[in-house]
Simulated assay, not measured.
Amino acid sequence: MQTPLELTFKHVEPTDEIKALVREKVDHLETFTDQITSCHVYIRAPHGSQRQGNLYEVTVEARVPGDELVVHPRQKDAAAHEHLQVAIRDAFASMEREIKRWKDKIRGDVKVHDGPLQGKIVEIHHDEGYGQIIATDQRLIYFHRNAVVDGRFEDLKPRDTVELVVQTGESEIGPQASTVRPIGAMEYDPSGG
């Protein structure tokens, strides 16, 4: 990390044991990516007392390039969070999932479960045999005339909606569609128009 770990306690005794546990959990997060630039952990006992039934809240904020990932305590975890170590474990397990999602997103591995990926043609060069599509996941996808199915490349024009399949391996020009199929209107318009 570029910035040292920030650890804030409220109504909780900041013991060396707890500080070491949090440091260990942060070190574990860094095994998933070396792109975490800073991490701030807030540990709170909401009612300020250490009596039985007191539920600890642990919030973890991790900054990564272009984003801030935040994990807040959830009420469904309440019973187990009478123990501070359990609340810390659960918060960092949630942050681990957030980091994995972020990594998938920046790699372009975001899974779409609502049917085929859709998009709109934003640029087409009939004379050179290629174009670009803005997909519903906001990626700009290159396509070649040979990828067009169920229609003719020459008939496509900007703002036409298409379904597409993106190749799994990214080429030197970025994400590329292996299949492009012209369709009617799509459910979600990535350009907002």
Rank of each mutant, 00 (worst) to 15 (best):
A185Y: 04
V70G: 02
K100Q: 09
E82K: 07
H83A: 06
R23P: 00
P175D: 00
M186L: 11
V112F: 14
H125T: 10
T31V: 10
I106Y: 02
Y56W: 11
E128D: 09
N146C: 00
A79I: 10
P190N: 06
I18P: 05
E187G: 15
E13V: 15
P14S: 01
T168A: 12
R74H: 13
T59P: 06
G48D: 08
D114P: 00
I106Q: 04
G108N: 05
M186R: 11
E6N: 10
L21R: 11
D16C: 04
V148S: 01
D114I: 12
Q132H: 13
R97P: 03
V71M: 04
S49H: 14
V12F: 07
L55F: 09
I18M: 07
G53S: 06
V12H: 07
A93D: 15
D34G: 14
I183C: 14
E30H: 14
D137W: 04
D104N: 14
A80G: 13
R152N: 13
V166F: 04
L164I: 14
L156F: 10
D160V: 08
K76Y: 13
G131V: 07
D189R: 07
I36C: 01
A147W: 05
R74N: 11
E13I: 13
D150R: 12
K103D: 12
H126R: 13
Q75M: 09
W102L: 02
I43Y: 08
S94W: 09
F32H: 10
A45T: 10
Q52K: 15
A20M: 09
